[in-house]
Amino acid sequence: MIQINNLMKIYGNTPALEGISFKVEKGEIVGFLGPNGAGKSTTLNILTGYLSSTSGSASVGGIDIYEFPDEAKKLIGYLPEQPPLYQDMKVSEYLNFVYEIKKCRLNRKKHLEEIMQVTKIHDVKNRLIGNLSKGYKQRVGIAQALVGNPPVIILDEPTVGLDPKQIIEIRNLIRNLGRTHTVILSSHILSEVQSVCDRIVIISEGRIVADEKTENLTRMTEDGSDYIAKICGPSREVAKTVREMNGVIFADPTGEREGDAYLFRIRSESGVDIRKPLFNLLAENGWPLVGLESVSLNLEDVFVRITDSDSRARARRKA
């Protein structure tokens, strides 16, 4: 449905994208993940025809966005990072305007009514957009993307700045959209894309560093977990002893303490469960283990992992 080939974008002398390629099949929900400034919005802006690329191509439904922009744009509903809302319009006026500029042919009243039902903005349809709360504005932005029932929906960080309840609502909405549409969702929050998307594309500094099914990525983040352990004992010796254990990558005091227990961050190799041996080892030394919790990896950790394994694989190939 969407195909991006070797996309490059250079702003002046600063490269923003350094050759991005990926494909999205019909009906997929794809998460586009990366830290701020990685090039997510640039990619989406190119894909929707807002920006041009320096080189490379992008097509939607087999239609090239440069060669047939009007046809390609008809297939896309786009919610940019900042929802493009006219503050001095009422919600219903705004949706009517969008309906007209998208040259929609569906039954206007019924179609807009449906969209307002789906995005739950029915009760604010006669209010000025400028007076709405952030959550409602975001939903009006999503409603705008749905006008014309385009097969592809592109959402750029749709949950930024919303409260937890609204985030859950928007996620459910996106999940429902995924049943009937192809969706690209960008975010810098790993758990968000994990909970919604079938596939995750991770981008960093203008390059794709991973393109995986969500299950695979989840496995990657789960095996070889990090732990925070609270151990009563001399901190330096404890760290040294734990480090010598089989399967431990590192064990460092975090510098914090709780009562007479020191906190350590311990990372194990993937596939090795160090919890029981750790307990035994500490018991042998007479250092009570008073707490052990596993830490779920955040985006940064995943990056480190992926780039680590990437460079390790490269080193192995060289050897």
Binding site: P80, Y86, K102
Partner: peptide, 12 residues
Amino acid sequence: LKTEQLLVTSPV
């Protein structure tokens, strides 16, 4: 207000 993004990404 970035509303030009809506105009530019519409088929007009």
